[in-house]
Amino acid sequence: MAHFKVENLGISFGGIRAVDNVSFEVKKNSIFSIIGPNGSGKTTIFNMISGIYKPDSGRVVLEGEDMVGLRPDMIARKGIARTFQNIQLFGNATVMDNLMLGRHIHMKTGIIGGAFMWGKWSGTAREEVKNREIVEHIVDFLELQSVRDQFVSSLPYGKRKLVELGRALALEPKVLLLDEPSAGMNTEEKDDLRIWIKDIQEDYQVTILLIEHDMNMVMGISDRILAINQGVEIIEDVPSEVQKHPDVIAAYLGEEE
């Protein structure tokens, strides 16, 4: 049984078939990339997996369980976390609070517990401290120490991307969806990111789905790649095969007249 698979996924917006009959399987703890030109439906696939859009057809299966029809917050509880293409952080909260929100589903404190957090030994405070410890490891891992108490809205773009990655990691997902994590980063930051993604895969035992335009990165770290164009699958194979496929080249570079 495949760890994570998508079967015949499709969605239409009005008369436009944005994604049509896309299927793929992802092995546990591997990196799976989705590539394709702008508007080909990559982010739409992510939105369907994370529950923001409801697909017209098909299934999203994680460890044998169908995710289609669940609300986004329930899907998060099942262990799917994501980042967004155009960074969606909580701008008026600190980096630490943003990361702590990633722990939301692992914590229990409700109104009463939160309101009556008296002193160090209350259950709430202990839960808070325990989760802060986990978050501090992520802060260390992504080298965010210098900005941990700053407001996210005051951070530069590259740092915000990392905070978003950290927030998704804090959720301890089984499957991590990264939507163009390197967009807007310079070469040096991209190299770091590449190492981090590899580390995440190894240290956190996470299955990673990646949408990325940087071909060096995609070809370098992916175990398998899915290429789509206008919502339709072109090929799904190992990087070396995808690179050679004439339709991929055509979609990216245009056809020879």
């Binding site: 969606q88 701008g91 589903i105 959720l171």
Partner: peptide, 16 residues
């Protein structure tokens, strides 16, 4: 705060 700043992101992070 998460709902105030970005409700979609909040929901994706597991906030009901």
């Amino acid at each position: 705060v998460a709902i105030r700043d970005d409700d979609i992101a909040a929901e994706v992070m597991g906030v009901n």
